[in-house]
Design a protein around this nucleic acid. Structure first.
Lengths: 167, 167
DNA sequence: TCGATTTCGTTTGCTACCAAACGGATATTA
DNA sequence: TAATATCCGTTTGGTAGCAAACGAAATCGA
């Protein structure tokens, strides 16, 4: 192992092996999956306590703003899909973002069941200020990895996403 | 790229690059971090809809049961730490597990502020039935990866966890 | 054209999650 | 030993998240 790591993590892993003894167990898969989850939690918490808290945004709120910035005004269902949220959850997130004045809803005349969501001026300003700082945080979170390791990590995860099936 | 992946994922990534144009942007870090989050979400959802739903357990509930199984009876604060949950959240999770009859609380005589949590017989039976099936699911979720790739993934994530700081 | 079906976003009811406030119990210190 | 501080788990108030039920609107069939 050519890089320093927190030795406590490996200790815990070894201990688990001892406790489970001779049970048949796919240890490699277990560690890969549980580390995905722990890493995601750590990364989300750090982002929410750091950059995002200054704008009163949750991870989901930031994602929504980001998607609207990149893709522009979107219909509600597409936005939920792109943010990887259920439509019910998106209603709540958009409601919160509306309260903060970052997004607005617009009824669609052609089909009055539909609603589009778009950034307000304040929302545009927020995401333009926020994104560079968020991207710096992202860099810190994977700062211990080389460029090729980051790419390798992203690629391995891409395959997990496909295997798990995002829906 | 020697493995098949969902081409839609890479398309979306390419699109983002186009939309952001010439903004300075750490693309590799962004993809690594966002894929960590998406993979965790996908993996959690699939587990909760599959194995865990049969026992009426959330991811957090399963984790708690698992930790109690491996470590045995624990004091509430240590359990929260080990499950990577705030103590307030743990109170709620344990409450739910109590309702299901899987765990029990015990007051500590020596220090009456403290409470220990342990598996009931039903809880022991549940986790012993559940774990092998959960482990199979874990295997499926990373089934597209070779053993050394799983280990590589776990190791890269371990370094992210340390860099992000789990608290 | 009008009843049935489908398709929207929202609402509802639930669990999960956090930070911060709380209140009881233990430690500390004057 | 009495006042103070600290340490526990719980509660509170908020957002987030899902599935399923819902109501309004559009579409389809006959």
């Amino acid at each position: 192992m050519q890089h320093r790591t927190d030795p406590r993590l490996l200790d815990a892993e070894r201990l688990i092996g001892e406790r489970l003894g001779d049970r048949r167990l796919d240890f490699d898969s277990m560690l890969a999956v549980s580390n995905i989850y722990r890493a995601a939690t750590a990364v989300r918490r750090r982002a929410e306590k750091g950059v995002l808290s200054e704008f009163g945004l949750s991870w989901g709120g930031f994602t929504t703003l980001w998607v609207l910035w990149v893709w522009g005004e979107m219909q509600s269902a597409d936005l939920a899909e792109e943010c990887d949220l259920s439509k019910g959850t998106l209603t709540g997130v958009v409601k919160t973002l509306e309260k903060r004045g970052f997004v607005q809803r617009t009824a669609v005349e052609a089909d009055r069941r539909k609603v589009t969501v778009s950034l307000t001026d304040a929302g545009l300003e927020a995401i333009e200020q926020l994104f560079p700082r968020f991207n710096l945080y992202e860099g810190e979170m994977v700062g211990d990895l080389s460029t090729s390791e980051k790419q390798e990590l992203a690629e391995l995860l891409r395959r997990v996403i496909v295997a798990a099936g995002s829906r």
